Computed example of a mutant assay.
Amino acid sequence: MESGTFYVCRNINNRSGPRTQSRCKDEEKAHKQRGSRRLVLISVGLGLICILLLVFIILLNITITAERDMIKSYKNTVEEFNRTINSLQHNNTDLITEKHQLQNNFNSLSQKNLVLETKVKNLTAEKDQLQRDFDSLNKKGLVNLFMSTELKSWSDSRQYCRDRGADLVIINTEEKQRFISSLVSERVWIGLSDRETEGIMKWVDNSPLKQGFWLKDEPNNANNEDCIELNYNREEPGWSPLNSWNDHSCSEKKKGICEK
């Protein structure tokens, strides 16, 4: 019987007897049994609901935990991705800087290459010219030249040549000047001076100078310079195969170019 519920068995005619009372007790008992079953069903239902709620809460907690872990993993992935992007940006900046440096180096090398190509062309042209001069001098029998082996003054260098049946060289043509310039790798005496009369240049055969191949601003007769040298230094300002003469003190010691 449900709590708070009372069951009353009455006889319609207000009469009672043993059978009636017995039947009334049976009905009351049956009614109590039905109430007990309802209570059990309700209890079982409530238990199932609690279990379902517990399962739902557990599943919800698992879902929340999984989502939290997923969000944390996503944040870590994003942070790692950002670090990777920053690293790539730094690397890209370094590569751009290196590219610019390489480009500058390439431009510099290209300019140097152009300069070298120009020098090669000039040297090739000079070589061809010297070859032509040599061939011309060879035909004229004017290549019988040799250099002294000792450093001497202009006079002693001339004597060195004369002791060997020669004299300091006389240069009176462009082709001969080019040819001799190609032979020397140091400053050397040639057979020209104004020792006898200042300002009047003469060759060792007493012939006057007709064509000179002077360096810029030479001769200048600084410190009583009366003898002429051929300057090989290609770095000298204004130097060229046709501009290499310089007046110098006759006492200076250097080798000489002899000619038979």
Rank of each mutant, 00 (worst) to 15 (best):
I12S: 13
K210T: 12
G35N: 07
L88G: 01
N231M: 03
W189K: 00
C50Q: 09
N246T: 00
E174A: 07
L102Y: 04
E236D: 07
N206G: 03
D247Q: 04
E196N: 11
K25H: 10
S249P: 07
S157E: 07
N107H: 10
I200V: 15
H100A: 15
E218W: 02
K139Q: 15
V188N: 00
F134D: 01
T197Y: 11
I85N: 06
T20S: 13
A125V: 06
C24W: 02
G47E: 15
L41F: 05
N246A: 06
N82V: 04
E198V: 06
K202G: 03
N91W: 08
K260G: 06
L209M: 11
K121E: 09
R38F: 08
Y232V: 07
V184A: 01
K202A: 00
P219N: 04
N11F: 14
S148E: 01
L168C: 04
T20G: 12
L59Q: 12
L151I: 03
S73V: 04
L102C: 02
D247K: 00
E236C: 01
H90M: 15
T149R: 00
R178E: 02
S36Q: 15
N14R: 15
R37D: 03
D194A: 10
Q21N: 11
I96G: 07
N107V: 10
V184Y: 05
S110Y: 09
K202R: 04
I200R: 14
E229P: 00
I200W: 13
T149F: 01
E252S: 10
V40M: 12
V143A: 09
V115W: 12
F81T: 12
V40E: 10
Q101W: 11
N61S: 08
S157V: 08
L46D: 11
L48E: 11
V115T: 12
G212C: 08
R195F: 03
V78G: 02
R34M: 07
F6L: 14
N224Y: 08
L123D: 14
E150D: 06
E225C: 01
S251G: 13
Y232P: 00
N233E: 13
L102F: 06
V143G: 02
E174S: 05
K121S: 07
Q21S: 13
R37Q: 08
R132H: 06
F81I: 09
E186D: 06
I58C: 12
L123R: 14
K75C: 05
R162C: 10
C24P: 04
D94C: 09
A66V: 05
R23G: 09
I257C: 00
P208E: 00
G191Y: 05
R34Y: 12
I180D: 07
K210Y: 04
K119R: 15
N233W: 13
F179M: 08
E126H: 15
T5S: 12
N14K: 12
N223E: 13
R234I: 11
S36T: 15
